[in-house]
Design a binder for these strands. Structure first.
Lengths: 205, 205
DNA sequence: TTGTTTACTGAACATCGTTCATTATGTTTG
DNA sequence: CAAACATAATGAACGATGTTCAGTAAACAA
């Protein structure tokens, strides 16, 4: 009785098709301009069909946000080859900022938008993707502590402080709050601010 | 010929009335649940009337965002009484975070939402409120540099780094990305992370 | 008292997320 | 093979949304 399994496969395939179309439109036009009807048009199905595979729009965007986290975690992979824990930490921050810069919509979905968080709130679930990603950071910070490169003993606290700084840079940039520095200077100033941060924690953390 | 002036006064009064109603509904129900029709109902006018005083919804929320900036700048005022520049800097960060915590909707409007920035983009204007607020920070940083409390010479660069950290903490908190730390621990962890940041820049910046 | 400017509105447009009765399709049973 | 059932997909609708515009009524000017 392989029929049930085929049905399951077809269901997965359909979810994949919807997410693919959603992602495409999302990256092309930005979140605000993508509607359920647009997505339905793209895959040549009725809008109502999408609701057979996703509870609502929040859940659809939550699924997209999960994909984006897989991408980010992948981009973190190369840091393993670096020599010292402190170099790993520095490169991780740089990768976080670069990810935000090169994938603004994905970053928005992962760390700024409300929709994905609203999706898991009603399911009273934990935010697993975020937890895993932070764990990667926290582990590197712990390495820094163990090797003596960081003196402060609490990896979670230090990790949050570091996350906040790089996230702040990325978020202020993406939400256009850096326009006060001028269109051409804001990117370099952002990089300089991050360099200064790295230099500071190397000395004082 | 005081008629023109009275007309002007009435016009200002009407704008004030609209903004007051919008602010009230905004704080009560959150941005996402406030529509032009709600605001019109609140002041007992037709929805179309609002468009006689504001170009569109973005411009209305831009005006609200200006009010919010006046409030924030006011809350920064007491730092003038503090002794050392470094104490001023520390207290400013704390005030920024507290402002976000106690006025989540206003903070969102000022530093996260797209709407207010979209309003000035088409007017190709500069973001004056943000510029002024950052200037306040930058001045304090410059004091720290002049007094030798901060060694790095560039106040703008250091200011952006500091702004990013406190903003990152506030933004991650408000957009519910700190749920990974647990409901009861996230607020204290946030404060601890800020303390650690202050300690770090006192040592290494 | 006219004519004209101004303030306001009701109704409409296009779009949105979402639901639901109905149809079409595929599967199982007699 | 035919009848009964289960599933997938849909068209049409609901109540919203932001925004526009022709039309009305009141305030002003001549």
């Amino acid at each position: 009785m392989g029929i049930l399994e085929r049905k399951e496969r077809e269901r997965e395939e359909m979810r994949r098709l919807i997410l693919e179309a959603a992602q495409k439109l999302f990256l092309a036009n930005g979140y605000e301009k993508v509607s359920i009807r647009n997505i339905a048009d793209e895959i040549e199905y009725s809008p109502a069909t999408i609701y057979l595979y996703f509870k609502d729009k929040n859940e659809l965007f939550f699924a997209l946000h999960q994909q984006a986290f897989r991408k980010l975690i992948n981009e973190f992979a190369p840091i393993a080859h670096l020599q010292t824990p402190m170099d790993k930490l520095e490169e991780m921050g740089r990768l976080y900022i670069r990810f935000a810069f090169e994938n603004p919509e994905l970053f928005d979905l992962m760390f700024i938008m409300n929709a994905p968080m609203d999706a898991i709130e009603c399911r009273e679930d934990i935010w697993d993707d975020g937890h895993q990603a932070f764990q990667v950071l926290q582990n590197v910070v712990q390495e820094c502590i163990d090797s003596g490169a960081i003196q402060h003993p609490d990896a979670e606290r230090a990790g949050l402080m570091i996350w906040s700084t790089v996230h702040g840079l990325a978020a202020l940039f993406l939400r256009k709050r850096m326009m006060i520095f001028g269109e051409e200077r804001k990117k370099t100033l952002m990089d300089e601010a991050y360099d200064l941060f790295v230099q500071t924690i190397r000395k004082g953390l």
